[in-house]
Design a protein around this nucleic acid. Structure first.
Length: 597
RNA sequence: GGACCGUUAGCUCAGCUGGAUAGAGCGCUGCCCUCCGAAGGCAGAGGCCAGAGGUUCGAAUCCUCUACGGUCCGCCA
């Protein structure tokens, strides 16, 4: 959204609720059906939940269609077309309905009155966030994403999950959920010891001591400055000491530095979290024990021996009694161990405790974003949450599929040794956060994604990022031109100037704008932010089409030379589209551009 | 052996709690434009929605089986 012009009268009063044309008309249909029940045309007790009002596939069928008659025919014991005919008569009484026509097997096609479209454009211009929805009713949702090990910079493999989780969180916030964005720091396992040992070697190097790098350590350059920092903090007091002495000092020091690094990387991508939750904080504080005790109280913990996995028996397999969580009780395939044979917790145990903590914090809904390689953990996590919350708290686990990198027309292989390992930083340096974010959302989260370093920067129609930004830039170019001609184009002036939309191409664009509030709700309900990206592409496409027609038919141009009133009316439509682009890109975390360079 | 995800136009992919004649971009074919309202436009061809059953007024969408591809599969995180 553009800030109101400085030095002007107060910002226009915003409508508290955005107009959702599809919801409004659906409410009208439901009202008509209720009336029909009351007057005995339909029997009582019908479930109207499956009644939909949606855009018809074929625009020739009108502006909207409802399936009410077909859905209710069975339960009501009536013929679809009879219900549709009766419903049509009632709907036609509403001023917003121009025509209601029974079609096909019992569809009711609705043509809306011409006055609906200027109302819609006005609503888009004056709403406080056109498309915002109260759907979530303030439900508390926890979205956990990124959660990379704090052992180094964020690399490209984590980016998709980061962008996805962030956009999903924004989408849910936009639709009336109370969202907490959370990062689980995996700082409890052996890999942070490895990190600490590697940092210690860098510390020794900072004292000009030569060191051997054992297999499996982290030799990355990013630890050099950690070694330097250790030196300036502790001087040479850690040199030559036993590991038992320096490890408790170096480990938190190094992980804190890594988290700073990660936070900076993510900030550059525009990703931020509200809560950073430390796995380590679960150990030695009784919190894991408390979570396991909860399961134990439900009879879900037992000692037993698992069958070896069929078809792929590990070489060193031997039957062994372990402490197990009865996850099969909640849909998992096998029960899962929560203790290693040496008595220590498995990774799963703190995970259970972490989710227990989320449940205790009172979230109504949990969402975890994992990498695709963690697909095998979905069932057990779901089982744990179901058991701990006694099926009260739903958890949705979204997997971010792999990203295939392309460069110079061929697959780009990453290799640490060849120095072609791509970090988030590299990516941002090369293509920037906006292109990265948008492109990462041009596929469904669970489908593989191609990321071509050359194509994502291409300025052409094939590139969705460019295409949407270009649409916005065109809108702003009209606004600039109008301002230069002394025409007021602030939202309230435009809202006051909206007139009837005359041309089919204009109505088509308005129709697309009307779909926005509906699309937002669908995307939020399905936890699929990519739908927003696809919608924006379609919207941009409609805007470009109208713009191009202006080349042939000057009457369709948004800016009408020497005619301020007509210009305002037409620019109002363009700006309404711009409002939606701004809202949509905002959800995706992409900054709209007002000018192409 | 099992689990999860996927399979839609030549290619890359959308497809709404099950709706009407399954869409977009690229590529292909034809026409138009060379205009800074620039970084092309319009139109067309192209489909057994992997296959087979089932559910129902209606299935790309839900269920079962099969085929193919990817990921994962007791102490790693």
């Amino acid at each position: 959204m553009t800030a109101p012009p400085a030095g002007r009268s107060p910002a226009p009063v915003k409508e508290p609720h955005a107009m959702n044309l599809f919801a409004d008309i659906r409410a009208l249909v439901v009202k008509a059906l209720t009336d029909m029940t009351e007057s005995g045309v339909l029997p009582g007790g019908l479930d109207l939940g499956n009644v939909t009002v949606e855009p018809p596939r074929d625009p020739g069928h009108g502006d909207m269609a409802t399936n009410a008659a077909m859905v209710l025919a069975g339960p009501a014991g009536a013929r679809p077309r009879d219900i549709a005919t009766a419903l049509a008569a009632r709907l036609a009484e509403d001023p917003r309905i121009d025509q209601a026509e029974v079609a096909g097997p019992g569809f009711l096609n609705l043509r809306l009155a011409a006055s609906v479209w200027p109302d819609l454009v006005r609503a888009a211009l004056t709403a406080d966030g056109f498309g915002r929805s109260a759907m979530g009713q303030g439900a508390k949702v926890n979205v956990e994403y990124v959660s990379t090990n704090p052992t180094g910079p964020v690399h490209v493999g984590h980016v998709r999950g980061a962008v996805f989780g962030d956009a999903l969180a924004s989408l849910l916030a936009y639709t009336g959920h109370e969202v907490t964005r959370e990062y689980y720091i995996n700082d409890g396992g052996a890999q942070v010891d490895t990190l600490a040992r590697s940092a210690y070697l860098r510390y020794l190097e900072a004292h000009d001591l030569s060191v051997d790098w054992p297999e499996g350590s982290y030799p990355g350059d990013y630890l050099i400055e950690v070694g330097e920092a250790l030196k300036s903090e502790y001087g040479d007091s850690l040199v030559g000491k036993d590991e038992g002495e320096w490890l408790p000092i170096v480990r938190p020091f190094a992980t804190d530095r890594m988290m700073d690094l990660i936070r900076d990387d993510l900030a550059a991508l525009g990703v931020r979290h509200d809560v950073f939750f430390s796995e380590k904080s679960l150990y030695g504080t009784g919190r894991i024990e408390a979570a396991i005790a909860d399961l134990e109280g439900k009879g879900l913990i037992y000692k037993g021996t698992l069958e070896p996995p069929k078809g792929k028996i590990p070489e060193d397999w031997e039957p062994r009694e372990q402490t197990l969580f009865r996850s099969t009780e909640y849909g998992d395939d096998v029960d899962r161990p929560i203790r290693k044979s040496d008595g220590a917790w498995t990774y799963f145990a703190p995970d259970i405790a972490y989710h227990y903590d989320k449940i205790e914090r009172g979230f109504d809904q949990l969402i975890d974003v994992f990498g695709a390689d963690h697909g095998g953990y979905v069932k057990r996590m779901k089982a744990a949450v179901a058991a701990l919350s006694e099926n009260r708290v739903p958890v949705d686990i979204k997997l971010a599929q792999i990203v295939k990198l392309w460069k110079d027309g061929e697959p780009f292989k990453m290799s640490k040794r060849a120095g072609t390992f791509i970090t988030l930083r590299d990516l941002l340096d090369q293509v920037g956060p906006d292109v990265t974010r948008f492109h990462m959302l041009t596929r469904k989260n669970d489908a593989p994604l191609d990321f071509d370093f050359d194509k994502v920067l291409e300025q052409s129609k094939d590139n969705p990022v460019f295409y949407v930004q270009y649409a916005n830039a065109r809108i702003h170019s009209v606004l600039r031109r109008a301002r230069e001609a002394g025409i007021a184009v602030d939202e309230s002036a435009l809202a006051g100037a909206v007139g009837a939309l005359e041309h089919e191409a204009e109505i088509g664009l308005a129709r697309k704008i009307a779909e926005w509030p509906r699309l937002v709700e669908i995307a939020a309900r399905t936890h699929e932010p990519h739908r927003v990206a696809f919608y924006l592409y379609d919207l941009a496409s409609d805007l470009h089409a109208l713009w191009n027609r202006g080349n042939e038919e000057p009457a369709l141009r948004f800016f009408q030379e020497g005619d301020a009133a007509t210009s305002q009316a037409k620019i109002a439509l363009a700006r309404a589209a711009g409002v939606v682009i701004g809202e949509g890109l905002g959800i995706l975390g992409v900054v709209p551009v007002e000018e192409m360079r």
